[in-house]
């Protein structure tokens, strides 16, 4: 067995933070992705520009740079927003976890907005027309007809993005959040055994991504089951 020199518990705690970070960023990213996709499909040109600008810009930047910028800039941006919108001139604290979640969610959302846009336009227009004819409002049509199908169509792509997100959580170590990579670096500093410890971290990441990919296969199967039933 690999001798972790008493740092096993610390690595385990780091893994938990990594998981929490990935799942929280996933939720933020899904919301931003849907908003982005709706913006891209908007009837108003400025909103479309905003949606396209968001995904094009973020997808062209290194994730690492986005994380650094968010970490150092989150407080500035939030304070500027709070001051102009609400007239609040106090100081706003952004924790490393919140900064990390937002940065990773922001990146995830940019890619997800493309997936969602593709999925939304792939749904036949007749369905929306039929829903409208039945008297559903635009909002009802979106939530009852479009969104459930978008989920199924976008799922494989979203799964890929989630894998990438899980690995990108390692970048958050630079902003001082004690996720897996960060606690590993601490342990390396104390034990002077970088290979053993980084390899252990690598194996933990492999486990996480493997479990996630199994979970995704399960979700995809479930989503596909629904389709067969609907067709029969």
């Amino acid at each position: 067995m690999i001798d972790l020199q008493g740092f096993g518990a610390l690595l385990f705690a780091g893994t938990q933070v990594t998981l929490q970070l990935a799942l929280a960023a996933l939720v933020v990213g899904l919301i931003l992705g849907l908003l982005g996709a709706t913006a891209k499909l908007s009837e108003h040109a400025p909103v479309r520009l905003l949606g396209n600008g968001y995904s094009t810009l973020v997808r062209g930047l290194p994730e690492f740079l986005v994380v650094l910028t968010f970490y150092f800039g989150a407080t500035d941006i939030l304070m500027a927003v709070a001051s102009t919108l609400f007239g609040y001139d106090g100081y706003i604290e952004v924790s490393a976890f919140a900064a990390g979640t937002t940065a990773l969610g922001f990146i995830f959302g940019a890619y997800a907005s493309e997936l969602f846009r593709g999925a939304i336009i792939s749904i036949p227009g007749g369905q929306a027309e039929a829903a409208r004819a039945l008297g559903m409002t635009k909002r009802q049509t979106f939530f009852r007809i479009t969104l459930p199908q978008v989920w199924r169509i976008a799922l494989p792509g979203l799964g890929n993005l989630f894998m990438i997100l899980m690995k990108d959580t390692a970048l958050i170590s630079v902003v001082g959040l004690e996720e897996l990579m960060r606690v590993t670096a601490f342990a390396v500093g104390r034990t002077k055994e970088p290979f053993t410890l980084y390899l252990t971290a690598a194996v933990i990441y492999l486990l996480l991504t493997s479990i996630a990919s199994l979970g995704l296969r399960y979700l995809e199967k479930r989503a596909a089951l629904g389709v067969r039933e609907a067709l029969s």
Partner: peptide, 15 residues
């Protein structure tokens, strides 16, 4: 594909 690039880099450089 299953591990972060940062871990791979540290494995090669420091490891």
């Amino acid at each position: 594909r299953g591990t972060p690039l940062l871990v791979q880099l540290f494995l090669v450089y420091y490891g």
